[in-house]
Deep mutational scan, measured.
Amino acid sequence: MTEYKLVVVGAGGVGKSALTIQLIQNHFVDEYDPTIEDSYRKQVVIDGETCLLDILDTAGQEEYSAMRDQYMRTGEGFLCVFAINNTKSFEDIHHYREQIKRVKDSEDVPMVLVGNKCDLPSRTVDTKQAQDLARSYGIPFIETSAKTRQGVDDAFYTLVREIRKHKEKMSKDGKKKKKKSKTKCVIM
């Protein structure tokens, strides 16, 4: 069974824990209790493949930012979460993405942009803004509501699919490099 290491990042209060708990335990946590770091595991079937999701729910508070490099190193894919009623959390996505790329030393890291709290009427981040940002990053965008469960499975499952595509691409690139290195030079 394939294991996928997913990391949920975003500013404090955007609903990272609520999304994760909704996926794992099928219930909505409405009281806000700032996370330092929590880890969850769940076995699911995605596109006919049974897999184990190892999900790291991270601290959004700035005082825990020193811990970010460590979990970013171990993560295979990242859910970059903002709240649709919090423009600052949307603007912060850029910083999370840049930090992930720096730590992973790669421009090509599996990510999904997630606009959470889409059940709320007080939207300050337009869907088109988020779609445009995701398009500019070359990553999928999904709106979710941890409260109603809308888009929750889709967000995590899409990230797994992005990781699969990335692994497939990397193995193809690896095979191309191996083929090239088999060419021999004969000096007579």
Rank of each mutant, 00 (worst) to 15 (best):
63 E>K: 08
63 E>V: 04
63 E>W: 02
63 E>R: 05
65 S>D: 06
65 S>M: 09
65 S>T: 07
65 S>C: 08
66 A>V: 12
66 A>E: 06
66 A>I: 06
67 M>T: 03
67 M>S: 01
67 M>Q: 00
67 M>H: 00
68 R>W: 03
68 R>K: 05
69 D>F: 01
69 D>H: 04
70 Q>M: 07
71 Y>M: 01
71 Y>F: 06
71 Y>I: 01
72 M>K: 01
72 M>V: 03
72 M>Y: 02
72 M>P: 02
72 M>A: 04
74 T>K: 04
74 T>R: 05
74 T>G: 13
76 E>S: 07
76 E>A: 09
76 E>Q: 09
77 G>Y: 05
77 G>N: 01
77 G>P: 01
78 F>G: 00
78 F>T: 01
78 F>Y: 06
79 L>A: 05
80 C>Y: 10
80 C>P: 01
80 C>K: 02
81 V>S: 06
81 V>M: 12
81 V>Y: 01
82 F>R: 00
83 A>S: 14
83 A>T: 09
83 A>P: 15
83 A>Y: 02
84 I>C: 15
84 I>D: 15
84 I>G: 15
86 N>Q: 08
86 N>F: 02
86 N>I: 03
86 N>T: 07
87 T>C: 07
87 T>V: 12
89 S>V: 05
89 S>R: 04
90 F>T: 05
90 F>V: 14
90 F>M: 14
91 E>A: 10
92 D>L: 07
92 D>E: 15
94 H>A: 14
96 Y>V: 11
96 Y>P: 02
97 R>K: 10
97 R>I: 15
97 R>T: 14
97 R>A: 15
97 R>W: 15
97 R>M: 15
97 R>P: 04
98 E>G: 04
98 E>P: 03
98 E>Y: 02
98 E>D: 08
99 Q>A: 09
99 Q>C: 06
99 Q>L: 12
100 I>D: 00
100 I>Q: 02
100 I>Y: 01
101 K>L: 12
101 K>Q: 12
101 K>D: 05
102 R>P: 02
102 R>E: 11
102 R>V: 07
102 R>Y: 04
104 K>Y: 06
104 K>N: 14
104 K>V: 10
106 S>Y: 13
106 S>E: 09
107 E>N: 11
108 D>G: 09
108 D>V: 08
109 V>G: 03
109 V>A: 06
110 P>S: 04
110 P>H: 06
110 P>N: 04
110 P>K: 03
111 M>R: 01
111 M>S: 01
111 M>Q: 01
111 M>Y: 03
111 M>A: 02
111 M>N: 01
111 M>P: 02
112 V>A: 03
112 V>W: 02
112 V>C: 04
113 L>I: 13
113 L>H: 01
114 V>I: 13
114 V>A: 04
115 G>M: 14
115 G>Y: 07
115 G>I: 10
115 G>C: 13
115 G>E: 06
116 N>G: 10
116 N>F: 01
116 N>C: 15
116 N>V: 15
116 N>I: 12
116 N>K: 00
117 K>F: 15
117 K>C: 14
117 K>D: 12
118 C>P: 08
118 C>V: 10
118 C>Q: 14
119 D>I: 03
120 L>M: 13
120 L>H: 12
120 L>I: 10
122 S>R: 09
122 S>K: 09
123 R>H: 13
124 T>L: 10
124 T>E: 13
124 T>V: 11
125 V>H: 12
125 V>G: 13
125 V>C: 13
125 V>M: 13
125 V>A: 13
126 D>Y: 09
126 D>G: 10
